[in-house]
């Protein structure tokens, strides 16, 4: 009988042919930088707000942020395409091997990078090793005074001080959709559910789905726009593709 230790956790193919399971395609050409995804993510995932002082220290907890860059100088200046940046759910993730507590592990079943809050001891090694800078650390028990907690999503753990956190690709929605599909004896259909950020995006810049299914919308769009990965030279095998556009 197999036990948990029999699992080969590092069984990830380090090759160009690697295909994850869940992935995203982001069309930066239409992203308007409106921050609706950031707000939606915070509401869905019980993310704490940190207040101006800690925000000034760069301790904001957002799991997704919209980066904006300048190109050129006045008057020939351009705000280049906005870049929504969240955990890229790497197939070969730099954050995973550095965690001494095995709190940052790879999900074989979902092909996602997990953050197991109850294992996390707060070394922050993972955040230091993440080339995308998408992990955020709970420096304090950030207060959400009553009655704000009434809004909490019961499907997502409320994190405490000393715990690292990051985008989960709304794994609670994945489980919910899979559970529903199983109860009806079918597979999860493409577009049946999506992440909070993709659902809210007024410009339809974010598409979420199965990247291992060539028929899914996300695969089709990635192909059509020739989506590129960030920092491919690091061999992270990221699951998020970007189209920068003009």
């Amino acid at each position: 009988m197999a036990t948990v230790t029999d699992l080969n956790i590092s069984e990830v193919k380090l090759s160009e042919e690697y295909v994850g399971k869940w992935g995203m395609f982001i069309n930066q050409d239409v992203c308007t930088g409106c921050q609706a995804c950031v707000a939606a993510c915070s509401m869905e995932n019980n993310i704490a707000f940190v207040g101006p002082e800690d925000a000034g220290y760069g301790r904001t907890m957002n799991w997704i942020r919209i980066e904006r860059f300048w190109d050129g100088e006045y008057p020939e200046i351009k705000m280049t395409s906005r870049q929504p940046m969240m955990c890229q759910q790497c197939g070969h993730a730099p954050c995973e091997p550095v965690c001494p507590a095995f709190a940052t592990v790879h999900s074989q079943a979902q092909q996602l990078n997990l953050q197991v809050y109850n294992r996390c001891v707060g070394t922050r090694y993972c955040a230091n090793n993440c080339p995308y800078q998408v992990r955020s650390f709970n420096w304090r028990d950030y207060k959400r005074p009553e009655p704000l907690p009434n809004q909490f999503n019961p499907d997502v753990t409320v994190r405490q001080r000393g715990v690292m956190e990051k985008c989960t690709f709304c794994i609670q929605r994945i489980h919910q959709a899979e559970d529903k599909a199983r109860s009806e004896g079918r597979e999860v259909a493409d577009g049946e559910f999506t992440t909070a950020c993709a659902q809210v995006c007024p410009a339809d810049a974010i598409t979420f789905g199965r990247v291992d299914n060539p028929e899914s919308l996300v695969s089709q769009l990635t192909k059509q726009y020739e989506g590129l990965k960030h920092l491919p030279e690091l061999g992270t095998l990221s699951n998020v593709s970007y189209f920068k556009g003009g």
Binding site: C34, Q35, A36, V38, A39, A40, S42, M43, P145, E146, P147, L148, P149, N150, Q151, Q199, V200, C201, P202
Partner: peptide
């Protein structure tokens, strides 16, 4: 009008409802 989308303010309306 919005075909299933909202803006950031629409998302944060719950922080008005449960505003301290």
């Amino acid at each position: 009008l919005n075909l299933g989308k909202t803006c950031a303010r629409g998302q944060a309306t719950l922080h008005g409802l449960y505003n301290p």
